[in-house]
């Protein structure tokens, strides 16, 4: 196993959401790992700023399979971001968020309001009012949404201090499908933007960070890698590289070749 990344990665340039500072710009999901031990090692290797968690009915095969998860969460001691995954109505979202607040003792909530089971596309028409309700109830809402500019603007208007547009449908690993809209979003909105869902490769994460996104949230790309622990580290490094590149100011692309080695004094050169 390779050495863990130093924590925090960017002490001088931390991710700040709702006035709270996070050690990393990588937010990592906790689902679909081969084992709890692999999850724990992936978290250790990547030092995520937050890890996402969820809630399911007690007494089902899902919760029985996760009987040690609570103890693992306490052991990992990483800030948790509960989600409202699987909710299809505002009523379900609000009750789930309130239950999550009690269980996990946090006001953070990743707002997921699913509008279509095939694409897991959020219900954009009811997302804004649901976010507003949660914010008025004291939640720090990180809404999972599409890359639609007006939707994201409306989420900001009702008090979301950060927005999380998808790159592609959840779990597809396709990377940013609509670069134009994502870059436009970055250009138009001043709040922190985190790309959530659809990333498959560290290069995808690096790319959106180069565009100026403030962080990424991913799960499947790490959990389903042949070596999730190494992939977690690769994503953490790519997020850091992308952020550093963004702050460094990239050169403008050119149409014609520009020699990098000085021409003056080139041996054997003759003016034609």
């Amino acid at each position: 196993m390779t050495a863990p990344l130093p924590n925090p990665l960017n002490t001088a340039d931390p991710l700040v959401l709702y006035g709270e500072t996070f050690a990393s710009r990588l937010l990592l999901g906790t689902s679909r790992y081969p084992s709890p031990q692999v999850l724990e090692n992936a978290v250790k290797q990547s030092n995520p700023g937050m890890i996402t968690v969820s809630l399911r009915r007690q007494g089902t095969s899902t919760t029985e399979a996760h009987s040690g998860f609570w103890d693992l969460l306490k052991k990992m001691a990483v800030p948790v971001l509960p989600n409202t995954a699987g909710c299809h109505s505002p009523k379900e979202v609000i009750a789930t968020a309130q239950m999550a607040r009690e269980v996990f003792e946090t006001n953070w909530i990743k707002l997921e309001l699913i509008g279509d089971d095939y694409t897991l596309q959020p219900d954009t028409l009811r997302l804004v009012s649901t976010a507003e309700t949660l914010i008025k109830d004291g939640f720090k809402v990180l809404p999972y949404c599409t890359e639609d500019l007006i939707l994201c603007q409306r989420l900001v208007d009702v008090g979301c201090q950060a927005v999380m547009p998808w790159a592609a449908p959840i779990g597809t690993g396709q990377g940013p499908l609509n670069p134009y809209a994502l870059k436009l979003l970055r250009d138009r909105l001043k709040v922190p933007l985190l790309v959530d869902a659809g990333l498959g490769l560290p290069s995808h994460a690096c790319t959106v960070m180069e565009w100026g996104f403030d962080g990424v949230l991913l799960n499947t790309a790490v959990a389903l890698a042949d070596d999730p622990v190494a992939m977690a580290k690769a994503f953490a490094m790519s997020v850091d590289a992308g952020r550093t590149a963004h702050l460094s100011g990239a050169m403008k692309a050119q149409q014609s070749a520009q020699a990098s080695t000085p021409l003056v004094g080139t041996p054997f050169w003759h003016q034609s």
């Binding site: 968690v53 399911r56 009915r57 007494g59 499947t220």
Partner: peptide, 9 residues
């Protein structure tokens, strides 16, 4: 509904 923590994405 009685719910408990599980992994999530």
């Amino acid at each position: 509904e009685v719910i408990s923590p599980v992994t999530g994405g």
